[in-house]
């Protein structure tokens, strides 16, 4: 899924390696602010859900662990941040960190059960935990507001300077900066020996055990990472909309985030972000549509993507590039160090 191997890119300069990406990350918020300020709210949703999809990609796309209950962590993050803000702790950044901590803790505890089983049982355990937490939040009306959602959040200005405004400008930049920071961390994780280990687990867990990897421990670690990022994403959603809907914990959201990943392309750092953008923007554009058409369309797109474009949007782009520029393919292959001599030479 990621043919460019981390070791082979090791020698490229930091700026050369990431320059284009950094430019992109600066250009996008600038473009939104200059040309599409009326879409701050939508862009905020894309960023928060993109982070959520990225967190799931660590599990599904990299570690090969399919979860049907990932909304649990998004919702736990959202409710943690929400409850803090309702009960007088309106400072957003510490709220975000506490939400991450809580989601990570729940992830750590449940990870033992999730990793204990495989295949269908694993799907069912992730699904089961998600449903349990949903039911618990639904019943605990006194705490969560049940299906009316959590209301009455008061969120303080970010860093004490930037008040959350009606246009959603602060909300957007706040979410975007947090997304960027999380993306940097996630990139690190993916490029690290731990990230390589996750890909090994996706490709062949049996062989991973045979090279001495404590596979369960590594999967648990990935699960906790995914939980933390999802918790942050949920907290961002809560703080920026100053409301937490019960749906943030639902199976429906767990399924939606999987769809985003499918649309963008699982196992790619940008897959979740692209998928979230496509999904959220499409839903916004088609919001006037009869909901049956929307549901039928989403289902049809899922079927078609799985059948004909399993790599999602990024997969299509990659194969287009390879078809149009066969030269680029061979030149990247050549750029990779072939012998230890070239590896040792550059530093």
């Amino acid at each position: 899924m990621t043919p460019s191997c981390p070791p082979s890119t090791a020698e490229a300069g930091w700026l050369r390696r990431r320059g284009g990406e950094i430019a992109l990350w600066l250009a996008v918020p600038l473009a939104v602010a200059l040309f599409l300020p009326e879409y701050y709210l939508l862009a905020t949703h894309v960023a928060a859900l993109g982070l959520f999809a990225l967190s799931l990609d660590l599990l599904v796309g990299y570690a090969g662990l399919l979860s049907l209950g990932h909304a649990m962590f998004f919702g736990i993050g959202a409710y943690t941040a929400g409850l803090l803000a309702v009960h007088g702790w309106g400072e957003p950044i510490s709220g975000l960190l506490i939400a991450a901590l809580v989601a990570g803790l729940v992830g750590f505890i449940t990870s033992f059960a999730v990793v204990r089983v495989q295949h269908l049982a694993q799907l069912m355990v992730t699904l089961g935990f998600g449903l349990l937490v949903f039911e618990a939040a639904n019943r605990a009306r006194w705490l969560t507001g049940g299906d009316d959602g959590l209301q009455g959040m008061v969120v303080s200005p970010v860093l004490g300077l930037f008040e959350f405004d009606l246009f959603g400008q602060t909300a957007f930049f706040y979410t975007f900066v947090v997304l960027a920071l999380c993306f940097i961390v996630a990139t690190r994780v993916i490029d690290s020996p731990f990230g390589l280990t996750l890909e090994g687990l996706r490709e062949n867990p049996k062989r991973m055990a045979a090279i001495g990897t404590p596979t369960a421990a590594r999967l648990r670690q990935a699960y906790v990472f995914a939980a933390v990022f999802a918790g942050i994403a949920g907290a961002l959603m809560a703080q920026t909309s100053q409301f937490v809907a019960l749906e943030t914990l639902s199976f429906g959201l767990s399924a939606e985030v999987l769809i985003m990943l499918l649309l963008g392309g699982a196992g790619h750092r940008y897959g979740g972000l692209v998928g979230a953008a496509v999904f959220v923007i499409a839903r916004d554009l088609l919001s006037d549509l009869n909901p049956q058409y929307w549901q039928f369309g989403v289902g049809g797109v899922m079927v078609l993507v799985v059948l004909f474009a399993p790599g999602g949007v990024l997969g299509i782009l990659r194969s287009l590039r390879q078809r149009l520029l066969p030269v680029a393919r061979t030149s990247t292959a050549k750029a990779a160090p072939a012998t230890p001599a070239t590896k040792g030479g550059a530093a």
Partner: peptide, 10 residues
Amino acid sequence: VLFTVGLTFM
């Protein structure tokens, strides 16, 4: 999973 959920939606 995604293929069959897609079929279900349809």
